[in-house]
């Protein structure tokens, strides 16, 4: 405790203007006690030392400081930089033609499926951008970050988000969490990842929503559900361990704005089940 001795000793508590003045009043500290270097308190025999000169306070001069980090020679002078992740274009998805279409005339062997949203943006990058905006980030910022900014792209991203939130399912959810990180052990393997969205429905049940940005039509949902059964099962298992109750898994196709109940693997029976 440190402070200035009150000019008028013996102030009443009510007139004390600071805590140190209260202390002087309570302990009966007088000018004599200050000159004597302290006093023994009547109750308990405790000694109160008073030092007028701060330099007279015995101080330990030793100190512990953290050891310095030695920068490797080859790194000296290098300035850190950051660059966005690199994406290499994956294989195009191609249209599947029916036999009757084939009979009508020549068709292009590899007619690519064009996405309604962010056409021309590489698939993995597009998926990342859409995940980012669906988790609540500003579309312009995300698109600039990934070098895909244009007013039309911003509009499309905002449309995806608006469509998602205006869906019947999202309009009724009680609670919703996004990008939940997890580490879970399934079949003896430790798996890490993050759940796109975990929602509690009005009836108290929980659903995991996994966003899918592939350009798919509703006819392909079942096929896609098979394809994503493993990853969705891991998300559901992680969510089950988080909330301690069974969780259903849904795929949300951003291209069509539709939900589809996904397939999940029963880890105990090691077989696929609805």
């Amino acid at each position: 405790m440190s402070g200035t001795a009150p000019e008028d000793a013996g102030l009443s508590f009510d007139l004390g203007r600071s805590r140190i003045e209260w202390l002087f009043t309570a302990l009966g500290v007088t000018g004599d006690a200050i000159a004597a270097g302290g006093l023994v308190l009547p109750s308990g025999g405790l000694r109160l030392s008073i030092v007028s000169d701060p330099l007279a306070i015995p101080a330990e001069t030793g100190r512990v400081s953290p050891s310095l980090l030695v920068v490797p020679e080859e790194c000296v002078g290098n300035v850190g930089t950051w660059s966005g992740p690199q994406y290499s274009p994956g294989p195009d998805r191609v249209k599947v033609v029916s036999v009757s279409e084939l009979e009508k005339g020549p068709v292009h062997a590899r007619d690519p499926v064009v996405s309604k949203y962010l056409p021309g943006v590489e698939g993995t990058k597009k998926g990342t951008i859409i995940h980012e905006v669906l988790r609540g980030r500003d579309a312009s910022t995300v698109l600039k970050e990934y070098g895909e900014y244009s007013e039309e792209h911003v509009r499309q991203c905002e449309e995806i988000v608006a469509r998602f939130w205006s869906s019947d399912l999202m309009k009724t959810v009680k609670r919703s969490y996004c990008e939940l990180p997890f580490v879970v052990t399934v079949s003896g393997v430790r798996v890490t990842g993050s759940i796109d969205r975990l929602c509690e429905l009005p009836d108290g049940s929980w659903v995991v929503i996994d966003y899918k940005s592939d350009p798919v039509s509703s006819a392909e949902y079942s096929l896609k559900a098979e394809e994503y059964a493993l990853s969705l099962s891991v998300y559901c298992e992680a969510a089950r361990q988080l909330i301690g109750a069974g969780v259903a898994g849904w795929l949300y196709f951003t291209e069509t704005g539709e939900f589809f109940k996904g397939l999940t693997i029963n880890w105990c029976k090691k077989r696929k089940a609805y």
Binding site: M1, S2, G3, T4, G16, R17, S18, R19, L23
Partner: peptide, 10 residues
Amino acid sequence: VFVSDMVMPF
């Protein structure tokens, strides 16, 4: 224990 701000006026 160090108690600081003992002189801060009320």
